[in-house]
């Protein structure tokens, strides 16, 4: 089903998607309407134009493909499904996502993957093709974030305070040197064989989606960031 979004509010748009028995949608002329596909499941939605904030919030299994760029809070608290962004994403992409995948071909703004969590079979994945802003993976508690820095020439493809408050999960950074200000909660190591196997699995679909050469990507050096200890905050307190 093709929906012309011109003049439609986000509420009307979402209602049309929810109420339709179709499972595949092309939304055309989207101009910043928010909340597209919020809580959506079982649909495949292609967005032509620019979605507003919170595209795919609470997403529960649907696939959303954005042919241009997305704004803030893409996939907020996403539970399952897939969001593909051919351009770049604004701030807080994948906030507290617990499942599903977000593929960004371009850059991500601040706080990508903040509060990302994993639980049992729910293992969220956020892949960023170019670079990410500051606070990548802040408070990360689980899941995997991969930043490829495809145009970063081996320089760290992240801003400041990468992994601040991290206490679970994993961050892969494709670069030759580490960000100079990694917080003490984070340990950085060269990628192990085990890590590489996992990375290859994660990248297959991503590379195919954006027509990238996976071998070329994997040829460069990767660091893996993990939390320093399981309970970094335990020693902070005493009692009265």
């Amino acid at each position: 089903m093709v929906i012309d979004a011109s003049g439609l509010s986000y509420k009307e748009l979402n209602e049309r998607i929810k109420e339709s028995s179709d499972t595949e949608f092309d939304i055309e002329n989207l101009k910043g309407q928010r909340y597209i596909a919020t809580g959506s499941k079982g649909k495949k939605i292609v967005i032509h134009g620019t979605p507003g904030n919170d595209v795919g919030a609470f997403l529960d299994g649907s696939e959303v493909e954005i042919l241009s760029s997305a704004q803030d809070a893409t996939g907020d608290t996403m539970n399952d499904g897939k969001i593909v962004i051919h351009g770049s994403a604004g701030d807080a992409a994948g906030y507290a996502m617990r499942g599903g995948k977000i593929y960004i071909r371009g850059r991500a703004g601040y706080r990508a993957g903040i509060h990302m969590k994993a639980y049992k079979e729910k293992r969220p994945l956020l892949i960023i093709g170019e670079s990410a802003g500051s606070f990548l993976g802040e408070y990360q508690a689980g899941g995997t974030i991969i930043v490829l820095g495809l145009s970063s020439d081996g320089k760290p493809p992240v801003g400041f305070f990468c992994g601040t408050g991290m206490h679970g999960g994993k961050i892969y950074l494709r670069c030759n040197e580490l960000p100079p200000d990694l917080p003490e909660q984070v340990i950085a190591e060269d990628m192990s064989e085990e890590d590489e196997k996992e990375l290859r699995e994660h990248l297959k679909d991503y590379a195919a989606t954006f027509n990238l050469d996976i071998e070329k990507i994997l040829k460069e050096h990767f660091f893996v960031l993990k939390p320093n200890s399981q309970n970094p905050y335990k020693r902070l307190y005493t009692h009265i």
């Binding site: 809070a73 906030y95 994993a118 729910k122 508690a141 689980g142 309970n231």
Partner: peptide, 26 residues
């Protein structure tokens, strides 16, 4: 809570997506 056993559950004071009334509205 949908987090693994033994992992800290950290819920910081700020919502990092809310810096204003407009963000709250979002």
């Amino acid at each position: 809570r949908m987090i693994p056993e033994g992992s800290d559950a950290i819920s910081p004071a700020p919502h990092h997506d809310i810096y204003s009334i407009e963000d709250l509205r979002q």
